[in-house]
Write a protein that binds this DNA or RNA. Structure first.
Lengths: 332, 332
DNA sequence: ATGAAAGCGCTAACAC
DNA sequence: GTGTTAGCGCTTTCAT
C-alpha cells in the first residue's frame, strides 16, 4: 500500500498479484471472473481494508446516482416529509438524496440548484421560489431532468407534481355552502403564493357554483403566521356580523383560527387546508382538506428516476395528487 | 468544444487562448490573476456555458464537503427537523447534507453509512440502530469523523449529542409526586431503546428521591404505537384503582394516552416526553418535557464540521441538550 | 503572473 | 477470462 491515505485498487491488485482490471471486475460483481481470482482479490481487500472510491468511479463512468432536492422551506414539516418519501424511493432504486432549502429566496434557489448541478446530480426536484427557471436550461439540455414540486416552474421543459389545490378548496367551501352557511370567512396567505391563489380560486368556484358571492369583508389574505391568522379571526369574531364558518388556506391559518375560536368557544364551523399531526385530538370537529404527502414525494422521485433511467427529456407533464375532505377532532 | 458532452476547462482554455491552469485560477477566484486574463476567461465561460465539475475537482483535491446523515426513522418528524437544522448549518458553512434512513435496521444502517463513506463524505451523523459501530473504525481512522445523535454509539471514537432524557423524566415525575400524585402510570416504549431506558430510569430516580416506590402494575412498556398506548391507558382507566396521573415516554405514547383520556374526560394529569405540533391547542392542560430539536441538529452539525475543519479525531465527548417542562393546552 | 506536466482512483476499450 | 492502455476533468507541483 502506498505510504499515505487509503489503499486503492492498484494496491489491492499488487497485494493479490492480479491486474487492476481484475480487481475492478471483482469489486463491481462482474460476471466471468474466475473463482480463484475472486477469492484472492477479496482476501487482499479484507487484508488492506480497501473501500471503493465512488467519487473516482463516477468521474470516470459519468454515473450520477444522486438526486438533489431544493425545498422552499425545510422548517415546514410537509417538505421534510416529502424529502423523507423521496429518499425512501431513491434509496430503493440505488440513488441517494441531497437536500437543501432556499428559504423562499429565489437567489438561493438558483445558487443551490446550480451547485447541485456542479456536483453532477442525476436530476433535481425543486419547490420553486423564483418565477423563472431558464437558468437551468443548459443543465436540462445536458441531460439533467427537473421535476417541480408543489408549485409550477417556468422556462424549462420539466415535469410537475402538484396538489389539487383548486378541487380541494372547492369541495371544502362547497360543503359549507351546502350546509347553509352564508357567512364564510377565508383566512389565506398571500395570493403571490401559487397554492394560495389556487385555493382561493377554488373557493370562489364553489361560491359561483352555488350561485353566491363571497363577502369581501370576510376574506383576509396575506396571513403568513398562526399569530396573524389568530388576530384576523379575533377581529372577525368581534365584528357586528361574525362569520358562521371559516375556510383556512393552510395549516398555519387553521392553527391561528383555532387559537382564536377555541378559548371563546365560538360557534364557527372550521375547515382548513393541510392536515397536521394531532389534528384528531382537537377538542371540536374540524374538517381538513388532506392529501397524501408521502405520495407527493414518492411520485416526484419516481418521475425523476424514470426520466434519469430513460435518459429522455421531460415532457412538461403535470400530475395532480388528489385531496379528500376528512373529519378531524371532535372526540373530546 | 469537444463534440460530445459539456465544455471542460480545456475547452474554455482553448476558447480564451490561455492555459488550463489560468482557467482554473479564475474559476476558483485565485488571487494574482491579471485582470485582462480574467476577463477573457469569463468571456469564454459565458460563451460556452461552462460549469465547473465538482466531482472531478474533489477527486483531485480530496476535498469532501458533504456530510451524511443516517437517521433511524425519517418518518419521525423529530428526525426530519433535525435533518433540516443540520442542512441549514452545513450549507452555511459550504457543505451539503445527504440523508438516508435505516428504518431501525442495523444492517441498513451499516450499509448506508459505508455507502456514504464510499462516496467520500467528510463526516457522518448517525442515529444508532446497531449496538456496535466498529465497522466504521477504518473510516474513522482514515479521517472521517462520526457524531452520534440522540443515542450513544459503540466501538469507535466519536462525539455524541444526546438529550437529557434522565433529567427531563426526573423533573416531570418529580413534579407530579410533589403535587401529591401517588398513582402515576407510565407508558413507555421498549427498554431496548436507549432513550426509553433513560427516561424510565429518570422517572424511577424521581420516585426514589421522593422516598416512594412506583406501582409496577401502572408501568406499561413496549408501547410502540399511539394505538397500543391508547389501549393500555384504557385498561388502566378501567381498572379498579385507576391512576391519577400518567407519564408518557414519547409523543406517540402521549397521543395514545390522550386518545383514551379525552373522550371519557378522565381526571388524569398528563405529562409526556417530546413536544409536538399543535400541542398548544389541546383541550386540557398537558405538561411536556420539551427540548430544542433545532439545537440538537445544529449542535451535531457544528461539532461534525468543527472536527472536519480541524482534521482531528473525535474525542468521544458527549454533549447534552437540556430539557424543560412546559405547559401545553388547557386554553379551550 | 502564467504555463506544462503529472496524476487523483477509477472504468472503458481493446487487445490477448 | 485476464491484462494493458488510455483518460474522465480537474488541481497540484514545479518551472518559467
Amino acid at each position: 500500500m502506498r505510504s499515505s491515505g487509503r489503499p486503492t485498487m492498484v494496491d489491492v491488485a499488487a497485494a493479490a498479484g492480479v491486474s487492476l482490471k481484475t480487481v475492478s471486475r471483482v469489486i463491481n460483481d462482474h460476471p466471468n471472473v474466475d473463482r480463484a481470482m475472486t477469492d484472492r482479490v477479496n482476501d487482499a481487500v479484507a487484508r488492506l481494508g480497501y473501500h471503493r472510491n465512488a467519487v473516482a468511479a463516477s468521474l470516470r463512468s459519468g454515473s450520477r446516482d444522486t438526486i438533489g432536492f431544493v425545498s422552499a422551506d425545510l422548517a415546514n414539516t410537509v417538505y421534510m416529509q416529502i424529502a423523507a418519501a423521496m429518499s425512501s424511493v431513491a434509496v430503493g432504486r440505488g440513488h441517494q438524496v441531497v437536500i437543501a432549502s432556499s428559504e423562499e429566496d429565489p437567489a438561493a434557489e438558483r445558487r443551490l440548484a446550480l451547485d447541485f448541478c456542479q456536483r453532477r446530480v442525476g436530476g433535481l426536484v425543486l419547490v420553486p421560489t423564483s418565477s423563472d427557471h431558464s437558468y437551468l436550461a443548459p443543465e436540462v439540455a445536458h441531460g439533467t431532468p427537473v421535476v417541480f414540486l408543489d408549485r409550477p416552474g417556468h422556462g424549462i421543459p420539466a415535469d410537475s407534481v402538484l396538489i389539487d389545490n383548486r378541487g380541494g378548496a372547492r369541495a371544502a367551501v362547497g360543503e359549507l355552502l351546502g350546509e347553509g352557511h352564508r357567512r364564510i370567512a377565508m383566512l389565506l396567505d398571500s395570493a403571490d403564493i401559487f397554492t394560495m391563489a389556487e385555493r382561493r380560486d377554488g373557493a370562489l368556484e364553489a361560491f359561483a357554483l352555488a350561485g353566491r358571492r363571497p363577502d369581501p369583508d370576510l376574506a383576509v389574505m396575506g396571513l403568513h403566521t398562526p399569530t396573524a391568522a389568530r388576530e384576523a379571526m379575533d377581529r372577525l369574531l368581534d365584528s357586528s356580523d361574525p362569520p358562521t364558518a371559516v375556510f383556512c388556506g393552510n395549516n398555519r391559518a387553521t392553527i391561528g383560527a383555532l387559537q382564536a375560536i377555541l378559548p371563546r368557544d365560538a360557534e364557527v364551523a372550521v375547515t382548513g387546508f393541510d392536515d397536521f399531526e394531532m389534528s384528531e385530538l382537537l377538542p371540536r370537529r374540524v374538517r381538513i382538506v388532506a392529501y397524501d404527502v408521502t405520495e407527493l414525494g414518492a411520485l416526484a422521485a419516481t418521475i425523476l428516476l424514470d426520466r434519469i433511467a430513460e435518459g429522455a427529456p421531460a415532457d412538461g407533464g403535470t400530475r395532480y395528487v388528489p385531496t379528500r375532505l376528512v373529519d378531524r377532532g371532535g372526540r373530546a
